[in-house]
Design a protein around this nucleic acid. Structure first.
Lengths: 351, 351
DNA sequence: ATCACTGGTGGGAGCGCTCCCACAGTACCT
DNA sequence: AGGTACTGTGGGAGCGCTCCCACCAGTGAT
């Protein structure tokens, strides 16, 4: 008689209890089946699954979150205004990788923009409320307080691009050092001898590593480091243009430029044109990121490609591991919390 | 003595109960303060707020969701693959409006892509679990089962672009009829007399309305409807090109074309060029959407602009109203559940 | 036989809120 | 005086899960 709806708000969604009654088992057993515990007999499992299907039972996430103290959600935090998010393929590629890796998981992905101060305050509140089990942090600046907030709140997080060589958070990065070497070695192999470098913002660790790669590639090839061939940029087009002009003034004999980003390269190209230098005839140019800009530049730009989609996938891998490790008070599997992925040089006619 | 942490897991986050103890009031009172109920004396409210601040209390969303049977989250569902989402400014504009209108709300926005079958199944499950209080549905096709699923689950939803004149869901749309009239009237005012129309996919209600607007504008101006001047397209570039070719064959004397989208217009332009017709000298061309394509076309394309960002804002308004109306079993404020916003003609040199 | 174990199971005790009923106090009519 | 009505407040009873302990076979070692 008391089959379903003991306290039956008959209209409502079925509950665990109702499934249990229907299947003739206890609540605990249904819970075990739902959560895929192995310690359930096959017969019982079948009975429960039948009841679930008949009743159209769907677990109540809020109740689960409350009881288990987890949310089964992670956030992808973009500390940029939404405009940049849409403008740069970096983010959509990243999102594609993240989505793919998450697709056969129960985890739900939240996309959070934190470009403005207001949004950042909201985010802090959000994190303080522990509304996600983990955080993916992309495109973080050196002075960003977010990573520290996360460690303080003890929320698992993975960062794309470590802030320094001593990064404490788990991170996934592409090989900035190796990518820079590839670019420079490519230019040298093409017979260039006076290779300049326009750097990125040097408070970004990845930009520093690119400078290191540039230097080492030159010295390994027996070229002394010529500091006059290095000019700081800031990843912007104007910065690239300004830096190029400075370089041309200082070292008019340069025959190649490695720019720390495609956008920077676009600026450099502009300055080169103004100075009447032909690309690649007079000066070869290599960028970084292999963005749409590179493909559409005139002439098409040789660039270093980062496996961004794979970075997204690896970030999820890492994060899920960190989240899982926190569930039982057990084994930390921190074997490799800093992942570095190889880059690839995409040669085009600018070099 | 028993001030805080009656059952104190000292490490954990403070709870409502702890705040109540600290402030020397009952749980109910703290809850009232947190939720902004007016029936709390100023003195008590101040005491509670102080306790909240001292303890750094943040409400537990899961507990609240469980007890109150709401989630304080809404979903923006995009039934397209992510690629299109990033490619078309429509979505980013929409998102901007939505975000703006939501920013001084406690509501959290979830972005859900449902392009593939797998994703759609996930979404259905997600909605069945009632993980959001409401849904924003953009870019829905006529045969999409999603709207019905939503009404069936009794989840408030707002659709961008009604599926028919009898749309039951709340909707926000731009004035497709009026926009088409604007386009045609503009062409007539420029002295054009044989204005053709390449339609959109006619299973999209908005496309039908554009045809209606086109027809009425012509007949109101005393031009009989010439069905030979109407050719179905499908919103794609190839479709536009094909339709244009057909029109030219059938009515080589046409002197203007109103295309149901900028993309369609791009296709039409191609066909016109191939046929040796000059734009606008021989044939004037008007598109729809005022997208980047319109601005960058050669010659720049006259187009009808939809206020997409405002549409996003209005959709949120409507949705929040619907969600609020469902909270107490009270007053439905369904005054205007179908919003239509005016369009604007942006004249450029193609007409 | 007795004593471990082990796989399988039931159900109590929470998780941290909101809802709502009860009730004290004050104020304003009859 | 007694009624009625409100404001402000406390706290019990859930919301629907998970966790964990207790318990019941069955199995093999002693």
């Amino acid at each position: 008689m008391a089959s379903h709806g003991a306290r039956g708000r008959s209209g409502g969604r079925p509950t665990l209890e109702e499934v249990a009654a229907r299947a003739g088992v206890g609540r605990g057993t249904v819970s075990r089946v739902i959560n895929g515990s192995p310690r359930v007999s096959d017969a019982t499992r079948a009975a429960v699954e039948a009841a679930v299907a008949e009743l159209g039972y769907v677990p109540n996430t809020a109740a689960r979150a409350l009881a288990a103290n987890r949310t089964d959600a992670i956030a992808l935090v973009v500390p940029e205004p939404e405009t940049r998010f849409f403008a740069e393929p970096y983010f959509s590629d990243m999102l594609k990788g993240v989505g793919a890796e998450l697709s056969d998981t129960e985890m739900q992905l939240l996309l959070i923009f934190a470009g403005s101060d207001k949004e950042r305050r909201r985010l802090a509140q959000y994190l303080a409320a522990h509304r996600v089990d983990g955080v993916l942090l992309v495109s973080v600046h050196a002075d960003d307080p977010l990573p520290d907030l996360l460690s303080q709140l003890d929320i698992p997080a993975v960062i794309s691009g470590p802030r320094s060589a001593q990064e404490t958070l788990a991170s996934v990065d592409s090989d900035n050092y190796g990518g820079a070497r590839q670019a420079v070695e490519h230019l040298l192999s093409r017979g260039r001898r006076r290779v300049a470098h326009i750097t990125g913002r040097l408070d970004v660790y990845g930009a520093q590593r690119r400078v290191d790669g540039y230097r080492d590639a030159l010295s390994d090839a027996g070229h002394g480091a010529d500091e006059a061939l290095i000019e700081p940029g800031d990843f912007t087009e104007e910065g690239g243009s300004r830096a190029m002009a400075a370089l041309l003034e200082r070292r008019p004999d340069l025959d190649a430029v490695f720019a720390a980003s495609d956008v920077t390269a676009a600026g450099a190209r502009h300055a080169l044109r103004e100075a009447g230098r032909r690309i690649p005839d007079d000066v070869a140019l290599v960028g970084y990121d292999d963005s749409a800009i590179a493909r559409h530049m005139e002439p098409p730009l040789t660039s270093v490609r980062q496996p961004i989609e794979e970075m997204g996938r690896r970030m999820i891998d890492l994060l899920l591991t960190e989240v899982a490790d926190r569930r039982p008070l057990a084994s930390r599997g921190l074997d490799r919390r800093q992942v570095v992925l190889a880059t690839e040089l995409v040669p085009r006619s600018s070099s």
